[in-house]
């Protein structure tokens, strides 16, 4: 009896630990989620109150949304930008991790790793501020350099064809270092006996990488690819919002910036929410499938 009470007593404290954050999560996440689902089927008028009685319009918001050219443009831009980002954010960090592992000077390795990871911790507001300066056609450092070499200025952020590429490259430069960490950790865990055997056999550096390092990384590479595919509708709000300008709206607008614009500058609350729900549901399906695959194939669990 005493033991049983003790058992319940122990469980009680876990509930006590769980509920305060859970209540916060319900208030600031799950209530907005439910309201968001409702709003996307309503003609939402803020005057009637967030929890007030609103007019139901069925699928009207979604129908209108899918008929908007700006929506399909944003969707296509999002897919182009994020798919290229996903591919590069696998290839570049893997390559750099492999090369970085070859560096024999510990100090040099540390300096490189610290430096390339640093931009991850700097906000897109600041980096956008910097890049807008550097890439400016008239006064920017890059174009000054190009002009000095006798080349014409490039409107990196002002012309559609360059905008997407600029967005992708600057994002990879910011994030590849941080993404390298997990691959470096994988390489560090490879059984050293394999390398020693290769050494005895007289394998070259390239052969070592090709036949030991890469095969040992295969699983984590597949896993990271699958998991990142779930985020294919996130092309990077912080970055695009801060780097976009009116000259490249058509080529640069992504789903998230469009959703923000609809909601906060055009005050189309229901339309914005419908676009957001579309994105949320597609993302949920993708991420759910990705995690399921990762769990089934690689025994990957989040918690």
């Amino acid at each position: 009896m005493k033991l049983l009470l003790k058992q319940i007593g122990r469980q009680w404290i876990f509930h006590l630990f769980i509920w305060p954050p859970l209540i916060m999560l319900i208030i600031f996440h799950y209530i907005p989620l439910i309201q968001g689902i409702r709003m996307s089927f309503q003609d939402f008028k803020p005057a009637k109150g967030f929890f007030g009685e609103q007019e139901w319009v069925g699928l009207e918001n979604y129908r209108y949304l899918f008929s908007l050219p700006s929506f399909s443009e944003a969707l296509i831009n999002t897919l182009i930008i994020s798919i290229i980002k996903i591919v590069l954010m696998i290839v570049v960090p893997v390559l750099i991790a492999v090369l970085l592992d070859e560096v024999s000077s510990k100090r040099l390795k540390k300096v490189i790793q610290t430096s390339i990871t640093l931009p991850h911790f700097i906000s897109w507001v600041l980096l956008a501020g910097i890049y807008i300066n550097i890439l400016s056609p008239s006064e920017g450092g890059i174009n000054v350099l190009l002009n000095r070499l006798g080349l014409e200025s490039i409107y990196f952020l002002g012309e559609g064809q360059f905008f997407k590429a600029t967005i992708i490259i600057t994002d990879v430069l910011k994030e590849f270092g941080f993404a390298t960490i997990v691959y470096l950790a994988t390489i560090a865990n490879i059984d050293q006996a394999q390398y020693e055997a290769a050494e005895v056999d007289g394998a070259t550096r390239f052969q070592r990488i090709r036949y030991i390092t890469i095969p040992n990384m295969q699983m984590i590479i597949i896993l990271m690819t699958v998991l990142s595919l779930g985020h294919v509708l996130n092309a990077g709000f912080d970055q695009v919002y801060n780097m976009i300008n009116s000259a490249v709206t058509r080529e640069g607008e992504i789903l998230d910036t469009l959703i923000y614009k609809m909601g906060f500058t055009q005050f189309e609350y229901s339309l914005s929410t419908a676009a957001n729900m579309f994105k949320s549901i597609v993302s949920l399906l993708l991420i759910g499938t990705a995690y399921l695959y990762a769990y089934k194939k690689h025994n990957y669990v989040v918690f």
């Binding site: 208030i27 209530i31 309201q35 709003m39 967030f50 914005s272 929410t273 949320s280």
Partner: peptide, 26 residues
């Protein structure tokens, strides 16, 4: 179940407009 409730919030949300309105209502 609790773990799922926490985890689900990272992959499924209501979006920025209801988030804003909830904060204003609070």
């Amino acid at each position: 179940i609790y773990a799922w409730i926490f985890f689900l919030s990272t992959i499924f949300g209501g979006g920025v407009v209801p988030w804003f309105m909830m904060i204003r209502a609070a």
